[in-house]
Simulated scan of single mutants.
Amino acid sequence: MSVSPAPLRTGAAPSAGPADIRLVVTDMDGTLLDDAKRLPAGLWPVLAELRRRGVLFSPASGRQYATLVREFAEVAEGMVFIAENGTYVVRDGVELSSDPLDAEVAAGVALAVRRLAADGVDAGAVVCGKRSAYVERSDEAFLAEVRKYYVEHRIVEDVTALDDEVIKVAVFDFGPAERTTAPALAAFSATHRVVVSGEHWVDVMNRTADKGAALRGLQRELGITPAQTMVFGDYLNDLEMLDAAEWSFAMAGAHPEVIARARHLAPSNNDNGVLSTITRVLGIPEL
């Protein structure tokens, strides 16, 4: 029995019966992971049940592909990873789609971040290639943040001269990125996408690149409709992805624009909101 995905502005998911869901897509930080960056308890049995039912589970994150694979090493086979905010989609090591960034644009962003740093902004660029991420800063405080999202990273002298296909440039700002770094990179928004992907992160990508575009491409390839798609997100880089699913959930405590855009509201990431919603909507008994 299918239930209608009518707008639901409460912390609970519908309970009229299991929905016809074929694809579950979730953001990681602030959504699936708790604030301590931990996967929720009970995730593996739920993923096994989803696989048994023929439901594809797909992480969609600003994180690097290699980082996502490490997080889901136990169940990565057959899983589709929407990495780097949708610019790189991979299944079993095979690229399904990508949206490379022009090298001159990537270099321009890196140079702009250098100028910000010279003006006293505590920020650094992470130039994201398909093989690795590349940084110029080598201080431990900055690298500790980079390691959380880019397990494959290299310190280089010049990130504007790389032998890799660049797919985005991420900028980490120790201050509030939405008020400092994002406005400083606004000039790139005339031709490219400048998106605040977290409290301290800004990503610069092609205009055609976002999680929503990657998800729609995956839906077309798999023959899955928005009505059969469930999506979870919490921040501004999740907005387009929410638009691609009728079962779109903002996490409690999400950015106000995300809450306004989503059809439903799930419990917070610290209250196991993704798993509790999946199990309730799909009628999965406690495992």
Rank of each mutant, 00 (worst) to 15 (best):
Val55Pro: 01
Val94Ser: 10
Glu84Met: 09
Pro100Thr: 00
Val105Arg: 11
Ala123Pro: 13
Glu74Asn: 09
Glu136Ser: 00
Glu74Trp: 01
Val80Pro: 00
Val135Leu: 05
Arg137Asn: 02
Leu116Cys: 14
Arg131Ile: 04
Ala110Gly: 04
Ser58Arg: 05
Ala66Leu: 10
Asn85Cys: 04
Ser98Ala: 15
Gly124Ala: 14
Pro100Val: 04
Val105Asp: 05
Glu95Arg: 13
Val90Thr: 06
Arg53Thr: 07
Gly124Glu: 07
Lys130Gln: 09
Val105Phe: 11
Glu104Gly: 13
Ala125Gly: 07
Arg63Ser: 02
Ala123Gln: 06
Gly62Tyr: 08
Glu49Asn: 03
Leu116Gly: 10
Gly93Phe: 07
Val127Trp: 13
Val75Cys: 15
Phe72Ile: 11
Gly78Trp: 00
Leu96Arg: 01
Val94Phe: 08
Arg137Ser: 00
Leu101Ile: 11
Ala66Pro: 08
Arg70Cys: 04
Tyr134Gln: 07
Arg137Ala: 01
Arg131Trp: 00
Gly129His: 05
Val135Asn: 01
Leu111Asn: 11
Glu84Ser: 13
Val69Gln: 14
Gly54Arg: 03
Tyr134Gly: 03
Asp92Ile: 07
Val80Cys: 12
Arg52Asn: 13
Ala103Val: 13
Ala76Val: 11
Val46Ser: 12
Ala48Met: 09
Ala110His: 04
Ala73Gln: 14
Ala133Met: 03
Leu50Tyr: 04
Ser97Val: 04
Glu136Lys: 01
Val121Trp: 12
Arg63Ile: 00
Ala117Thr: 08
Arg114Ile: 06
Glu49His: 02
Glu77Cys: 05
Val46Asp: 11
Gly108Glu: 09
Ala106Trp: 01
Glu71Ser: 14
Phe57Thr: 03
Ala110Phe: 06
Asp122Arg: 07
Leu116Ala: 13
Arg52Asp: 15
Gly62Pro: 12
Ser132Leu: 09
Val90Asp: 03
Val121Cys: 14
Tyr134Phe: 15
Arg115Tyr: 09
Leu111Ile: 10
Ala133Cys: 12
Asp99Cys: 15
Ala106Thr: 00
Leu68His: 03
Ala117Val: 05
Tyr88Glu: 02
Arg70Val: 02
Arg137Glu: 00
Val75Pro: 03
Ala76Asn: 10
Ala123Val: 12
Arg52Thr: 13
Gln64Met: 14
Ala73Trp: 07
Val121Ala: 13
Leu116His: 08
Asp119Ala: 15
Arg137Trp: 00
Asp102Cys: 11
Asp92Arg: 02
Gly62Thr: 08
Ser132Thr: 08
Val69Phe: 07
Arg53Glu: 06
Gly62Gln: 06
Asn85Ala: 02
Val55Gly: 02
Lys130Trp: 01
Val89Asp: 00
Ala107His: 12
Gln64Lys: 09
Phe72Tyr: 15
Arg53Gln: 12
Tyr88Trp: 08
Gly86Cys: 06
Phe57Ala: 05
Gly93Leu: 06
Val90Lys: 02
Thr67Met: 07
Val75Gly: 06
